[in-house]
Design a protein around this nucleic acid. Structure first.
Length: 472
RNA sequence: GCCCCCGUCGUCCAGAGGCCUAGGACACGGCCCUUUCAAGGCCGCGACACGGAUUCGAAUUCCGUCGGGGGCACCA
């Protein structure tokens, strides 16, 4: 098996979330992945899912790498440097998937299916109405269809009608599931793109991944993945299904209920080593029970066997305490150094340097970056020669433009905003003033789009909404 | 509805048949220290979901119930 002999060092991968941000869940797994890989002299690669709706664009990809670096989890290889087994970007791998899907059809382990979405929807609806589990009825399975180019079709894999799948999981032990509870999954879509199931199997094989570490939400598709390895004649990797991090209400951790972006923690002033320590205590513990430890300690002692099987609630209480302990452990010069070296502070400096007459003025000039809720004086949002009713459309239009705007950089942002204003015949000075107040609660601030870049998308959008609310 | 995973203090973990009248950390409460607030020290509150079975003995094994979560897409 790959990765199980010393001569064959493990290769693990991180699959970033579609937005490209490094989220707490991903960071949490990456931390263990990397500890494990490093300990055994292996590698850790990033597989970029940049096709279809998973569009990790350059700037967000960069922010993910920045977050990993901040955590100290960077390694000598970027997404394109995972060794000779790339490409690691899905968009560059497209031709491979269709070929394998067709190979499976030829081998009789997959088949063309021309069922229409309408038929499938009706089928599903009928099954639900009859309190049956929704699943494909294998209508095309034995038809031996060979649809022409023009006829829309997908390729589905054949799942055995009986028997069961038995797998070994590094954290949970034996995982069993009857084949009859898995249906004939689509592996190649009508548009020629693979579904995740095919893509991940092909990619992990091509990239020589030895250990697949992923959330337990994937357990139920494990039999299909294993089947795909078997059909393709490949040795499957080892699997570790990690518990899911949860909200306080026990649901799967979500953006609505937590700050899930690593950047937020960085900006909030948490120390990366405290963050690592905290994350490593979720679902795992040091064999000797120590609760203050470093990444090097994790590296030395991490095993999948010690990962808990129940899902931890992600709560900040303990992180704050740990962070305090790390801060207190720093001597004053070191602490001072850490404060000024903080990337968020570093990013603010160029914006306020020319506005500072004393070093102390740095604080009032940058205070607005840190407020959770800005205290608006609504009349400030209404620039000279404008009336209150003018403003909401400006802010709303800006918000809509910014929601998915990429790349999140001052230059492009300014260009796009100016274009928006020109299109609507709005006065730049007036609109920019309103935006400025919305983002900083003040009529005096560093240049608008530079401020936006440093503030980040999330806070920018939040503040636009807040300003709109203040005007309502 | 069906399938799967899981179930120890409010939260995070320890616990792999006797070391458990269940241990630590965070949070919370009290006291001490102290011009305040922290930090620190001491003390306290607080859990093995329930029911059976196996065993001389179960938090630890098995079964059931209940509870929570996840999955059941031409999303990942």
């Amino acid at each position: 098996m790959p990765g199980t002999s010393p001569a064959d060092p493990p290769r693990l991968r991180l699959a970033p979330s579609p937005t490209g941000d490094l989220h707490v869940g991903a960071a949490w797994m990456a931390l263990f992945d990397l500890a494990f890989a490093r300990r055994h002299g292996g590698q850790f690669v990033i597989r970029i899912e940049d096709t279809d709706q998973a569009r990790a664009q350059v700037d967000s990809e960069q922010s993910m790498l920045d977050s990993l670096r901040w955590l100290g989890l960077d390694w000598d290889e970027g997404p394109d440097k995972g060794g000779p087994y790339g490409p690691y970007r899905q968009s560059e791998r497209l031709p491979r998937y269709a070929a394998y899907a067709r190979q499976l059809v030829e081998q009789g382990q997959a088949y063309y299916c021309t069922c229409t979405p309408e038929r499938l929807a009706a089928l599903r609806q009928a099954q639900m109405a009859n309190k049956q589990p929704p699943s494909y009825d294998r209508h095309c399975r034995e038809l031996g269809l060979h649809p022409g180019q023009s006829e829309p079709h997908v390729i589905r894999m054949k799942v055995p009608l009986e028997g069961e799948s038995v797998a070994h999981d590094l954290v949970r032990g034996e995982l069993r599931r009857a084949y009859k509870d898995s249906d004939d999954q689509v592996i190649l879509k009508a548009d020629g793109f693979p579904t995740y199931h095919l893509a991940v199997v092909v990619d992990d094989h091509d990239m020589r991944i030895s250990h697949v570490v992923r959330g337990e939400e994937w357990i139920s598709s494990l039999p299909k993945h294993l089947l795909l390895y078997q059909y393709l004649g490949w040795e499957p990797p080892l699997f570790a299904h990690m518990p899911l991090l949860r909200n306080a209400d026990k649901s799967k951790i979500s953006k609505r209920k937590h700050h899930t972006s690593m950047q937020w923690y960085e900006r909030q002033g948490y120390l990366p080593e405290a963050m690592i320590n905290f994350l490593a205590m979720l679902g795992w513990s040091m064999p000797d029970g120590r609760e203050l430890f470093t990444f090097a300690d994790v590296m030395e002692h991490f095993t999948f066997e010690r990962v808990v099987t129940s899902s931890p609630v992600f709560s900040l209480e303990k992180l704050q305490s740990i962070n305090g302990q790390y801060i207190r452990a720093l001597d004053i010069p070191a602490l001072a150094e850490r404060m000024v070296q903080r990337p968020y502070v570093l990013a603010q400096l160029p914006l306020v340097r020319e506005r500072m007459r004393t070093l102390n003025e740095f604080h009032p000039l940058t205070a607005f970056f840190y407020e959770d809720v800005l205290a608006y004086e609504p009349q400030l949002l209404v620039p000279k020669k404008a009336v209150a009713a003018d403003v909401p459309p400006w802010l709303a239009a800006a918000r809509d433009l910014l929601r998915d705007f990429r790349p999140w950089r001052a230059g492009p942002l300014e260009e796009a905003l100016r274009a928006l204003l020109a299109e609507n015949g709005w006065a730049t000075g007036q609109v920019f003033m309103s935006l400025r107040v919305a983002l900083t609660a003040s009529t005096q601030s560093p240049p608008l789009t530079e401020t936006m870049e440093v503030l980040g998308r999330e806070k920018t959008l939040q503040r636009l909404d807040a300003a709109l609310q203040a005007l309502a």
